[in-house]
């Protein structure tokens, strides 16, 4: 399957990544090969096959446990104030 550079750039943008020009070739190839495997599979698997698997989701009761000390959050952050994380101004 053919994967264009345009497609690769589009998904890179979605994933917030930059792909260097010299890497583009191998990215497109890899993507193309996995999708061509998918084509083989589409031939094997009918459209009517269900993907639904069972299992009931366990749930928890609506009780509160103490949150963590704010310092532990801020300590890990690259940039922060006494109360919040800081990022460059987001334009609405």
């Amino acid at each position: 399957m053919e994967i264009t550079r345009e497609t690769a750039r589009y998904v890179a943008k979605l994933a917030k990544l930059e792909i260097a020009d010299e890497d583009m070739e191998s990215v497109c190839q890899g993507l193309g090969s996995i999708l061509s495997y998918m084509d083989d599979i589409n031939a094997t698997v009918g459209a009517d096959a269900g993907s639904v698997t069972g299992g009931d989701c366990p749930t928890r009761p609506d009780t509160v446990t103490p949150s963590m000390n704010r310092l532990m959050l801020l300590d890990n952050a690259p940039e922060h104030s006494d109360e919040t994380l800081i990022v460059p101004r987001v334009v609405e």
Partner: peptide, 22 residues
């Protein structure tokens, strides 16, 4: 990065049902 890009692609518009759901 390659894994992310392929993953992003198979979930992106139009591909979910032909790829991930498959």
């Amino acid at each position: 990065k390659a894994v992310i890009l392929y993953g992003s692609d198979v979930l992106s518009k139009g591909r979910y049902f032909t790829c991930y759901d498959k």
